[in-house]
Design a binder for these strands. Structure first.
Length: 304
DNA sequence: ACGCCTACCTGCTTGC
DNA sequence: TGCAAGCAGGTAGGCG
């Protein structure tokens, strides 16, 4: 479900509604939602009495920074949602973790498919160290905890909306990669926060075929891709996210971006630019949508 | 580096 | 109507 714009929407909502709130109790209804290093009961014990100072985002993870420097991470994965419920709101059968707040409200972690994970990390434990697969096996000691770096942030790539993410930087990263564009955009160690919807949208906007090899782009291609990725993400945020079936912000309301999508889940419907039917293929086991006219097939080199 | 597979889960849609 | 198959916004981990 949630990609960068959806996670950003949730984080901004929570920053407004929950920053400054104190957690008086918590209930874990699905234990596997709580990840290492804390067993669920320690997670609850350690959070009781904690105050949320600030809520932010890194990649697709919501970060709830506590007053004492510790951080709660919330990886929403496919169907996770963080929802603030006013007192008296009926219980939610899909609430996997519920935080009771001092003022009587509840902060609910709802997750139909149970893929999402919550973690509680010591201050300073969130630096994104290393990148790629090697980072996963390295271990880091923080106070009394030992955990694998990859369990916090598995070497995420740059934030596409950060100032430092220039077209030149993207060109540098693309230049020596033979992978397909679609696969690279989904690779969180290449670029953080882009998922299946916004990858397809960005490629359509940049008029680049999803199967195009990254190292075949010329400077103009890279500039279009850079601009497109940032545009689709920014527009997604402005529209409070794309709700295909179930995304909601912390206010429980769906986003408005789904109806503005140009290709995602628009198979056989006309391209907004040229009218040709949008096609669906599978790339890296993920559904991929594109316009066969606007995003021309990469020409296989006649070699071998 | 990269592709491909399986797992993790539940619910909704589609087609017979 | 019923039932099975296919599909879903993500990612970790294993193998080749």
């Amino acid at each position: 479900m949630p990609e960068l714009p959806e996670v950003e929407t949730v984080a901004r909502d929570l920053q407004r509604s929950v920053a400054g709130a104190t957690i008086t109790d918590a209930t874990v209804n699905w234990e596997r939602t709580i990840r290492h290093p804390q067993p669920p009961e320690r997670f609850v014990a350690e959070l009781t009495g904690a105050t949320i100072r600030r809520v932010g985002r890194r990649a697709k993870t919501v970060l709830m920074h506590l007053e004492d420097g510790r951080v709660i991470t919330v990886a929403l994965r496919m169907t996770g949602a963080l929802i603030v419920a006013q007192p008296g709101t009926p219980a939610d059968p899909y609430a996997r973790v519920v935080f009771e707040l001092e003022d009587g409200r509840e902060l609910r972690y709802r997750d139909v498919r149970k893929f999402g994970r919550l973690g509680l990390w010591p201050g300073g434990g969130l630096r994104s160290v290393g990148a790629g697969r090697g980072a996963r096996s390295r271990r880091v000691a923080e106070g009394r905890h030992t955990y694998r770096v990859g369990e916090v942030f598995s070497g995420h790539g740059p934030e596409p909306l950060a100032r430092g993410f220039s077209a030149a930087r993207l060109a540098e990263r693309l230049g020596n990669r033979s992978a397909k564009l679609k696969a690279l955009l989904l690779d969180q160690s290449f670029i953080a926060g882009v998922g299946n919807i916004y990858a397809d949208e960005a490629l359509w906007r940049a008029r680049l075929h999803p199967l195009r090899r990254a190292d075949t782009l010329d400077a103009a291609d890279v500039r279009r891709l850079h601009r497109s990725v940032r545009q689709v993400l920014r527009e997604g945020i402005l529209n409070r996210g794309s709700s295909i079936s179930d995304f909601v912000g912390a206010d429980g309301e769906p986003g408005a971006n789904a109806e503005r999508l140009a290709v995602y889940r628009r198979t056989d419907r006309p391209c907004h630019r040229c009218g040709r039917p949008i096609r669906r293929i599978v790339v890296g086991q993920r559904s991929t949508h594109f316009c066969p006219r606007c995003q021309p097939e990469p020409v296989a080199s006649a070699e071998v």
